[in-house]
């Protein structure tokens, strides 16, 4: 259980911005900067953060869909960070992704059978003659009927489409699946279906998930650990159970406070963060969060905080996490940030 399936060492993904006439970038958008993270075999790691903080890019970078500027990605011990497409092929089968918009992730001109066959081609254990049989099995796994294989994607509902996407991801016999906001395009009842399906499949095939979302309530329900991302950096990793009850980082607290409570009489005001999300092309110096932080001191704008372990598989990046923890400010305080 404690083997790490994927470990990221200081990975950076920068996109060129504002190219000059000759195509040389004048500046970079630092979508992911200096992220180090372990994903443990069999867990479901959540990744939360505001829109535009680089969570999807991080997910894509792990699967080598987004360019990797520097750093190491170790998948079952092998560094896949520098492999080109040809050498990546055997790893592609082991890592799959399910996207946010199920409708856009299925080619409208292909039948479900063709879509699944395309993925099955990567699965060396399945012979070509058995594609039909295997497709039916896959559809059964995601609760769709065999006769659906000859249909086109537009003949399905959003939830069914997402389940087809999950079936496609399973077709290659993967060990690791990234769910990139996979439930946010679906309505609530369908969300629940897809999520329980995800958990069922995780147990059945011993899968490891990276679950990217901004829905904290789903996070708490699905994930074993949660990583919090802010402006391209991961600032806190903790067990899902304790993360929002006992956050170590002021930003995590702020995220939790921003969730509306479904009780008009609770009288609690929403703790909305002041200031704006920093531009990824020009992130603040030192700790990226300091311009919006209530507990900032001089050092915050000068030095980038180091990773401090707070438990076996959890850590935080904040200069004052110990002080805040001892004072208990983040745990029970009612004041809004």
């Amino acid at each position: 259980m404690n083997e790490s399936l994927i470990s990221l060492e200081q990975i950076n993904t920068w996109f060129p911005n504002n190219k000059s006439l000759l195509g040389k970038p004048r500046s970079w958008i630092k979508a992911v900067s200096d992220v180090s993270l372990n994903i443990i075999e069999g867990e479901c790691l959540g990744l939360v953060g505001e829109s535009g903080c680089g969570k999807s890019t991080l997910g894509r970078a792990i699967l080598r869909l987004a360019p990797l500027s520097s750093g190491e990605i170790r998948f079952m011990g092998d560094d896949i960070g520098k492999l080109d497409n040809k050498w990546l092929k055997p790893y592609r089968a082991k890592m799959q992704m399910v996207f946010q918009d199920p409708k856009a992730s299925l080619n409208p001109k292909m039948t479900i059978f063709k879509i699944l066959s395309e993925a099955l081609a990567l699965n060396l254990r399945v012979e070509k003659e058995n594609y039909l049989e295997q497709s039916v099995k896959l559809l059964d796994l995601v609760d769709l009927r065999p006769e659906h294989i000859y249909r086109y994607p537009h003949e399905f509902s959003g939830g069914q489409q997402q389940r087809i996407c999950i079936a496609r991801a399973l077709a290659t016999d993967p060990k690791f699946i990234v769910f990139d906001e996979a439930t946010s395009a679906l309505d609530v009842s369908v969300q629940a279906q897809v999520i329980s399906l995800m958990r069922e499949l995780q147990d059945k095939f011993n899968l490891t998930y990276l679950f990217i979302s901004h829905d904290l309530s789903i996070m708490e329900y699905v994930c074993t650990r949660v990583a919090v991302m802010y402006a391209g950096q991961i600032i806190e990793v903790q067990d899902a159970g304790s993360l929002f009850d006992a956050p170590r980082h002021p930003y995590t607290k702020a995220l939790k406070n921003a969730v509306p409570i479904a009780d008009p009489e609770s009288g609690k005001e929403l703790g909305i963060l002041k200031g704006e999300v920093p531009k990824l092309s020009d992130p603040p110096t030192g700790c990226h969060f300091h311009p919006r932080c209530n507990y900032k001191e001089d050092i915050c704008s000068k030095k980038s905080p180091l990773v401090c372990k707070t438990g076996e598989n959890s850590w935080v990046r904040c200069h004052f996490h110990e002080k805040l923890w001892k004072q208990g400010i983040l745990i029970n305080s009612k004041e809004s940030l």
Partner: peptide, 10 residues
């Protein structure tokens, strides 16, 4: 995304 999905399948 289906183009990206195909890229991901190599």
């Amino acid at each position: 995304l289906y183009v990206e999905a195909a890229q991901m399948l190599g």
